[in-house]
Design a protein around this nucleic acid. Structure first.
Lengths: 206, 206
DNA sequence: ATCTATTTGCGATAATTTGCACTTAAGCCC
DNA sequence: GGGCTTAAGTGCAAATTATCGCAAATAGAT
């Protein structure tokens, strides 16, 4: 089991496994198989078994996987057993939608504060948050030791804010701005750009 | 050039190239190199050259790539020279943010109509759209020959709506619901689930 | 006109990732 | 208990993907 380094592509699939397992659990199922999980996700059963074998042995031959147990193991591996406090920067329409989204907590994340630099927005209320002045962001991150941030700002502002976040010690950034960020190697970045996905699909649509 | 089949992973990078080129163009640059583009995106120059070589020869040795020309070629390859009409289903906070986002048109997509099944929302106005009854969705898609849809609905509703979309002839679905859809092989699906990205990052954050 | 700097495109090679197929273990039925 | 069925875990082969390194082309300098 547990080789020294796990390929990133494998790590990237674990959240999908966890999500599918949570759905199954919500349906009251207790046991599943790599086959069933694979069909649900459009992934081969062999790949799922191989992926999981990187971390240990979680199944029972002839039976399959206990859904609750495997989900628990994946949460441990992905380190989402405890809540991560997340800073949200940018309160436009998108930031507002993110702030109001109630699907984070169940899956390991809690928005701890929201920031904007627009004086018209600072102090206003968004969902259960009071919008804080961007000027406070860096000290807040340092003091509360926040390690994860979501960036819902215009592309033109993203790099400079990212630089601030990095300076303040952030370790992971989920960037909704349609641009690529330059960050030090030790900082994780992931992107969400709907147009990238759309363009990838239209290549295939006749 | 142009081998019969281009790996999906290559197609998936083209939108990133196009996005970076558009940024450069906005900065007034005219020429770039695979090296420069790669540094901007965190991708090796060799990979960019290899990817592009799948489709033709777009650069000039010793000089690099004309940004405008290459962007034009990528738009052609990705088939986003002309606008795609997109149906948006689900007008919660997220749907509202999507409906108000003004970044689609420049990159090849226009939201043509928004749908919801909640009587309290039908008829109301969201940005420049009037929310239409979900009951109209299938006939609208057929009549207007809409081929792309965005799904911003709860996970519990996503599969059933996806089935309707497929029945109506949709060919590409961008799913914001945190669930996996089952669709026929000829239908493209892409997913946006922020938590998947977050969980992928926390694996690495110490 | 020649020399030097670049930088592309691409065949060859290396690394990674996936899938196959087999062994082993577990549950179930009789 | 024995036989049958199911399904995990895994070594190995195959397929895919990324990188290397170089010939050829181009621009610019001298």
């Amino acid at each position: 089991m547990a080789s020294l380094i796990v390929p990133d592509i494998v790590v990237g699939r674990l959240p999908l496994y966890l999500r599918a397992l949570s759905e199954m659990m919500a349906e009251g199922k207790e046991i599943t198989s790599s086959q069933e999980l694979g069909e649900h996700l459009g992934i081969s059963s062999a790949q799922i078994r191989k992926d999981l074998s990187q971390f240990g042995e979680f199944g029972k031959q002839g039976t399959g996987y206990n859904i609750g147990f495997l989900a628990e193991q994946l949460r441990r591996i992905l380190r989402v057993e405890e809540l991560w406090e997340v800073a949200l920067v940018g309160i436009g329409d998108l930031g507002r939608a993110i702030a109001n989204y109630d699907g984070f907590v169940d899956r390991g994340f809690r928005i701890s504060a929201v920031y904007d630099s627009d004086p018209a927005k600072i102090g206003s209320t968004v969902g259960k948050f009071k919008v804080l002045d961007y000027a406070r962001l860096m000290t807040d991150i340092r003091q509360k030791e926040i390690r994860v941030a979501m960036l819902a700002v215009p592309a033109s502002a993203a790099q400079s804010i990212s630089d601030d976040l990095v300076k303040a010690g952030i370790q992971a950034i989920l960037c909704y701005a349609p641009t690529s960020l330059t960050v030090p190697e030790h900082v994780q970045v992931q992107y969400i750009d709907p147009v990238v996905h759309l363009q990838r699909m239209t290549y295939y649509v006749h």
